[in-house]
Design a protein around this nucleic acid. Structure first.
Length: 423
RNA sequence: GGAGAGGUGCUCGAGUGGUUGAAGAGGUACGCCUGGAAAGCGUAUAUACGGUGUGGAAUCGUAUCGAGAGUUCGAAUCUCUUCCUCUCCGCCA
């Protein structure tokens, strides 16, 4: 969430910038500014009452020690009203604070100045494109047919065991998964990311920390008996490593990478958008996360985008990078670049990675801060990106590399798969 | 799952109702000392919110001893709830 300080000091600017995200924040922000004034007043009143109480208590203690019973008892009586006042002010304060937070979480992050205007995905700006566009024959198959033809992925079997959206990978299909995970992790490590292996279930505090809770509760699987949530992305546990942490400025940027299975309930639409591997309840992903100094977080973002580009290049896939427009960006992001690869048989672009700078929006909730040489504590910037999500990469690999002899594996991946062709 | 112990500052660790935001030690930083270093000495070393205030600073108040609620004039210290950790037994990849 945005910091209250920033909102109260830049009210008009905040409202203006939110407009790019097609969010009318005027009413909420007016309300929160007003509540903040109320909060400060209440805080002052509470503080002075508490101070008075503390002094009285000390006095009473002294009186008892000196044996002045009568005076002590008299002083005691004065505390009764004061006590009541403190209780009421305390209640009022926490109520106001809670209301403020409830409003703050409804206000999205401010888009970066470079975010293009626009409402829908069509308004996203193509930054650059690359990779070889395949030339497929007329009878090219979509990946779900290829998966069946070569017995790589069994969707029906997954339905039997768990339900729709939980495919069973088999043989070279399973090995391809494992190869991609290792390929992505090795590349990330070589790019300076520390590999971590996080838990796949998280507690509610972690859910709040990265913003899945409270508003997106329905998107996560919830183990109610233990009140734990299956992670929708490794971003959640990895970023929460830095919850309530004050880092040393010289340790920035922190760069972590993690593989995890990802679980998403996403009871969405049906049809070609969710066919095959396009949308799943469980899938594999390697995530990269950076905790950065505010002054250089956009350099870090560029670095991350360039890094992801090396991956799609090595995989020899046709790709494009989109700078998301205000209307298509996520709630929490300040600037997002999406990577899409072209799926030749489906004749459509598939989103395979999303790289974002959240600035201090996420760090504010996480209370992830750093302390510099000047001893001042301030919020870090957090960034993350998929590097990458497997299913759509697999879809594109299968479709784009199909030949009459079988499916060709890109050279960079062969050391990981141990085979050059799926036939 | 059964039985027990415990959660205090960067770390260790004292503290069972009254200047204890917290002794002591260690660590770290700065200064002194030294030819240089070690040792020694001195000083500093949490966070948040609020007030006054500045060029930068500073300073005062309040809260925080796992979390929440309660008892009390007053709670790290007493009571309850809850979370977590550890030890032994059981079970188990």
């Amino acid at each position: 969430m945005l910091t209250l300080k920033y909102i109260t000091e830049n009210t008009d600017d905040v409202i203006a910038r939110l407009a790019k995200k097609h969010f009318d924040g005027a009413a909420l922000i007016a309300q929160v500014v007003e509540l903040d004034k109320e909060r400060k007043t209440t805080q002052s009143q509470l503080d002075s009452s508490s101070a008075e109480m503390n002094n009285l208590s000390k006095e009473i203690g002294m009186l008892f020690k000196q044996g002045k019973q009568a005076e002590a008892v008299a002083a005691k009586e004065k505390t009764t009203v004061l006590k009541e006042t403190i209780k009421n002010l305390g209640d009022k304060l926490s109520e106001t604070e809670q209301t403020i937070i409830n409003i703050l979480v409804q206000i999205p992050n401010l888009p970066h100045a470079s975010v293009p205007e626009g409402k829908h995905a069509e308004d996203n700006k193509v930054e650059r494109t690359g990779g070889p566009m395949p030339n497929l024959p007329e009878n090219a198959l979509p990946h779900w047919d290829l998966a069946k033809k070569y017995d790589l992925i069994d969707f029906e079997l997954g339905v039997k065991i768990s339900g729709a959206g939980f495919p069973v990978y088999k043989g070279k299909g399973a090995r391809l998964q494992r190869a991609l995970i290792n390929f992505f992790l090795d590349n990330a490590r070589e790019a300076g990311y520390l590999e971590v292996q996080p838990p796949y279930v998280v507690n509610a505090s972690s859910g709040y920390g990265t913003g899945q809770l409270p508003d997106k509760e329905g998107q996560m699987y919830h183990c109610e008996v233990d009140d734990l949530y299956l992670i929708p992305t490794a971003e959640v546990p990895v970023t929460n490593i830095y919850r309530d942490v004050i880092l040393d400025e010289k340790d920035l940027p922190v760069k972590n990478t993690a593989y995890s299975a990802c679980f998403r309930r996403e009871a969405g639409s049906y049809g070609k958008d969710v066919r095959g591997l396009n949308r799943l309840h469980q899938f594999d992903k390697v995530e990269i996360v950076q905790i950065a100094h505010p002054d250089t977080s956009y350099d870090r973002l560029t670095e991350m985008v360039n890094y992801v580009q090396t991956l799609v290049d090595k995989l020899e896939l046709p790709w494009r990078i989109l700078r998301l427009c205000g209307g298509d960006m996520s709630f929490t992001s300040a600037l997002t670049f999406d990577f899409e690869v072209f799926s030749a048989a489906q004749q459509r672009w598939l989103e395979v990675s999303s790289v974002s700078n959240f600035e201090s929006y996420q760090a504010n909730r996480l209370k992830c801060r750093f302390k510099g040489a000047d001893k001042k504590t301030q919020l870090c910037h957090t960034l993350n990106g998929s590097a990458m999500a497997l299913p759509r990469i697999v879809a594109a690999l299968l479709e784009n590399n199909q030949t009459p002899q079988g499916i060709r594996i890109p050279k960079a991946l062969v050391p990981y798969t141990g085979f050059e062709i799926i036939d």
